[in-house]
């Protein structure tokens, strides 16, 4: 565990608490893509199935359980509790266009051709693109509540912070994980436009608005 990795995990945790806070205080899931949240459930379940056969640390297991539980809880809030506040007509990104290529990538790029490793690779690729329905929705509405942009910033920062972690681990442990690194760079890249507007507008006290 190094500082980049730890800050990345904290950022990921923070993003979920920000999202829960947004939904609970506004009593609404307006502006949040259900499709993206559903993809995260798939990502976490696919990757963290190893809870059943691999023990790393208490930290690791607790985080995995938290990410599975919180992502399922968010789906419950969106689909049942605050269902009327969710507008499916603007959340239209076709997720099969993400799922199928990720499955193919996982079948080609994996460290061992067995069920658990292919599933792990699938979850890494899927996580990289799972934000697309959300970004697509943002693009369509052209604006977002401040709290939603803080959620996205924390979520984007998480994988961005893993990049210096991988560099650090390469030099200290000689560890290289080309699949995670490639997918992580793609994932961070998808946030660049968002980060630009976030830093130049939201953090300067303005509203998040995309140019028409």
């Amino acid at each position: 565990m190094n500082i980049f990795r730890f800050l990345g995990d904290l950022s990921h945790l923070a993003s979920i608490f920000i999202l829960l806070h947004k939904i609970q205080t506004t009593r609404s899931c307006r502006g949040i893509s259900f499709r993206t949240q559903a993809l995260y459930v798939v990502v976490f379940i696919a990757r963290y199935l190893d809870l059943f056969f691999r023990y790393v640390s208490l930290y690791n297991s607790a985080m995995k359980l938290f990410f599975i539980a919180s992502s399922c809880y968010i789906l419950y809030l969106m689909k049942i509790r605050y269902r009327p506040t969710h507008d499916p007509s603007i959340d239209t990104f076709r997720v099969e266009y993400l799922l199928a290529p990720c499955l193919i990538l996982a079948l080609i790029f994996n460290y061992k051709f067995n069920f658990a490793e292919v599933l792990w690779s699938f979850s890494i690729w899927l996580e990289a693109v799972a934000i697309l329905p959300q970004l697509f929705m943002l693009q369509r509405t052209g604006e977002a509540e401040n709290i939603t942009t803080h959620y996205l910033a924390a979520l984007g920062a998480y994988r961005a912070l893993y990049i210096p972690n991988w560099i650090y681990r390469y030099f200290t442990e000689g560890l290289v994980d080309p699949i995670a690194v490639t997918a992580g760079i793609v994932q961070t890249g998808l946030y660049l436009d968002f980060f630009y507007v976030y830093f130049t507008k939201v953090l300067q006290g303005q509203k998040f608005e995309l140019p028409a």
Binding site: R54, S57, Y111, E117, Y170, E173, D177
Partner: peptide, 10 residues
């Protein structure tokens, strides 16, 4: 260098 997933990452 060893190549592969660390599996200790989240």
């Amino acid at each position: 260098a060893s190549e592969g997933p660390s599996h200790d990452e989240l």
